[in-house]
Each structure stands twice: as C-alpha cells, then as structure tokens.
C-alpha cells in the first residue's frame, strides 16, 4: 500500500497538518497547501448540499489517473484527507487509524491548542511508524 500524503483540516477548513510520505510528490508552497485545504472544504460543503440523496455526508472519494483521495470527516467536523495510489483498497481503514492517533497524541496533549496547527512530536513519530512499514 502506498500512501502519498496526509492532510488534516480543522472544522473551519484551515489546514492544521500536512505531511508527505513519498519522494515523488510535487511540493507546493505552504500558502498553496492552505488554499488547497480551504478549497476542498468549500467543495465538500457544496457536494453535501447538491447531492441528489437526502442526508448526504459530502464528497468521500476523488479518483484520478495519478492518485486516489479519500476524505474522512469526523462527527466534530475535522477532516482527514489521505492521498494514495489509484485503485488502492481499504484507505478508509487508514483514515480511521490516523483519526485514532490524532485522538491519542494530539487531543490528549496538554500543550496542543485546539484548532491550531499540529506540532506534536509523538504524533509525527507514531504516524510515521504506522505508515512507513506499509510502503
């Protein structure tokens, strides 16, 4: 399984975490990452409104020739975006596991301010330990 990148968005659509796991990715400027996050937040909100099915939760998967993007939105509105290689199964499992790590190592950290960018060493470490062996 190849995970390319993981993004975490807070409930206002601000980017609070971004990490690449693969060398081949094109680097964006930090401002572009923020724009990307904000744009996705808006698109997600629109998709949940214009869905023909009532009670839709919004965009979940985006597939292209180069990548597959899975979005997992928690009940509190935090979004986890996982970019992986196309036709990759079971990405939702990865999303849930990342959410678990986030709940443990970010939310239980007394030095983390809620809704602010995540700078937690142990979160980085455990995320790496989870993603790396899969590569």
């Amino acid at each position: 399984m190849v995970i390319l990148s993981i993004l975490i968005l807070n409930k206002a659509g601000g980017l609070i975490y971004q990490r690449d796991f693969n060398e081949g990715l094109k680097k964006l400027s930090s401002n572009d990452y923020l724009v990307l996050a904000g744009t996705f937040h808006g698109v997600h909100a629109i998709t949940s409104r214009i869905s023909p099915v009532p009670g839709s939760g919004g965009l979940e998967v985006l597939e292209s020739d180069q990548f597959r993007m899975q979005c997992f939105q928690t009940l509190t509105g935090t979004k986890f975006l996982v970019f992986a290689e196309p036709h990759q199964p079971n990405i939702d499992v990865v999303c849930r596991r990342v959410y678990e790590l986030y709940a443990d190592y970010v939310m239980k950290n007394p030095f983390y301010q809620i809704e602010m960018p995540i700078r937690c060493e142990s979160f980085d470490r455990h995320l790496m330990a989870y993603i790396k062996p899969k590569q």
């Binding site: 190592y105 950290n109 030095f111 937690c120």
Partner: peptide, 10 residues
C-alpha cells in the same frame, strides 16, 4: 508522558 509532546521552546 505517553501522550504528551513538549513544544520545542519548552
């Protein structure tokens, strides 16, 4: 300490 990450400035 298992869930605590101390910020760099501390």
């Amino acid at each position: 300490n298992s869930y605590i990450s101390v910020p760099r400035e501390m």
